[in-house]
Structures are given as structure tokens and as C-alpha cells.
Design a protein around this nucleic acid. Structure first.
Lengths: 116, 116
DNA sequence: AAGTTGATAAACCGGTTGGTTGAATACACT
DNA sequence: AGTGTATTCAACCAACCGGTTTATCAACTT
């Protein structure tokens, strides 16, 4: 299973997206993450495994707790992938527009490597 | 199955992503889309059904052909969803930048309130 | 040493997915 | 009417998914 597929598949489940949203507020243990869900702890543990394999979280070790941490790199890749198709939804999109937008946020090194 | 999950699930298959990439070059019939793949036409037809249900393509009717067309709106939603997490990968991200972006016209990304 | 807590592992189950083959439908061309 | 072409439908299959329950492991507490 390729990387991108694993990330998309992980994101296809609402429970897992909710877990990511929770982790955006800070690291959490498995029990803390499982608390809001109407399912067993083991089920949540499985979801965490899927997220971990997709590279969306990492798990530490603190005594008997395994604190989970959000890892956003795959989300950046997802975003970049979707941006490939920007010209199909953004009618304002053209090469000049992109250039201007990239300049707007302020003094930035010109060639940022943005592939859009 | 909620909308976002359907889109992510549709994108989780490499064959389906390849179909979208092909459609970015222009509309195509089922046969044309199926040609590069080492699988039956029927299998591709099923993939197209999944993409259609996710809103990623629409299908027209021209005699016995069903030309497929890329629909990018769900990809915009995907991109917007991922952008929620931008601050976790982009260290240049700060509140002012967000504020400026929010002033640009257009729908704002939904705040993940859609658990289950 | 024994018990409690946090978490994972393993076996199981029903439903879904991604593929197959074969039949059916719809249209165009003689 | 009959044939070829484009596509879908239906039945089937193995594999995977999301959940369960039971058992196990690891670390802290008493």
C-alpha cells in the first residue's frame, strides 16, 4: 500500500478524523482519546494503529501511558496533492494570480519551491 | 457515510486517483479510462461509480458513450480540511496570516463538528 | 507478592471492497 | 432484423475493515 493511499484511507474514517482534531489541542493518552467515543478502548487502539501506520501520529512512552502526538507532515502532502487540481475549482487561478499570491504574505525568498 | 469520508475513501485507491489525473487532461469515456489499467472494464466501471458517488466526477450521455468529467469541488473541500492543520506543519504560520487569508472571499473551511 | 491500571494482542464476526466472469441493456450501422 | 460496440448489472469470491470479547503484558500502588 503506497503512502498516499494509506493516508487517505486513514482519513476516510470519521472517528480517526475526530481523533486528529482532538490531538490538535494537545497530546493525549489512549484512554483520553477513547473517552468521547461509544466504542471499546480496543477499537480506538486499532484506529490509533492505523493513524500511526499512516504517519499521522507518533506514540511515546511514559510509564504505562502511550501519549499520542499529531504528526502533520502527511496532511501537508494531502494538501499539496489536492492543490494539483486547484485550477479546476478556482477560476481566478492562472499563472499570474499564483505569482501575486505567493508574493503577498510579505518579504519572502522568491523561489520557495512551491510547485503549484 | 458522510460526504468527507466518501471523498477520502474514493481517493484512497491509486487506480481512482490515476483516473482523476487522466480526467484532468480532458473528459474521457469508460473505455478510454480503462485502457491503461490491467483490470477488466467492469472493474473500472465500478471505480467510476465510487468516484461519482463521492461527487468527484459526473457522467454525461453521448449515444452509447458515457463521457466522464472531473468535478473538483470535493477536492477543494479536502484541501480546505487539510489546511485546518497547516499550523502544525508550517512554522511561518501565525494568526495574522490566518486573518489575512480569512478576509479573502469564498466559503470558509468547515470546523470539524461532524463526528460520525 | 498481589492487585490495579493503561494498553496491546488474538480470535472472531458481519459487512464492505476490489476484483472476476457472464449476462443484459442501449445505441449505431448495415 | 441482425451485428458490433459501449457500458452496466448480477452473482460470486477472497481479502480487508470496524467492531466485539477475552486474554496478556507492562508498569505503578499497596
Amino acid at each position: 500500500m503506497d503512502k498516499l493511499s494509506a493516508v487517505f484511507a486513514a482519513l476516510a474514517d470519521p472517528t480517526r478524523r475526530a481523533i486528529l482534531a482532538r490531538l490538535a489541542d494537545g497530546d493525549a493518552t489512549v484512554n483520553q482519546l477513547a473517552e468521547p467515543f461509544p466504542m471499546s478502548l480496543q477499537a480506538v487502539s486499532k484506529h490509533l494503529k492505523v493513524l500511526e501506520q499512516a504517519g499521522l501520529i507518533t506514540r511515546g512512552k511514559d510509564a504505562q501511558w502511550r501519549p499520542c502526538k499529531l504528526e502533520a507532515a502527511p496532511l501537508r502532502e494531502i494538501s499539496a496533492w489536492a492543490e494539483q487540481y486547484r485550477r479546476f475549482w478556482d477560476e481566478r487561478y492562472d499563472r499570474l494570480d499564483t505569482y501575486l499570491k505567493d508574493l503577498r504574505p510579505g518579504p519572502k525568498p522568491p523561489s520557495e519551491g512551491e510547485v503549484r
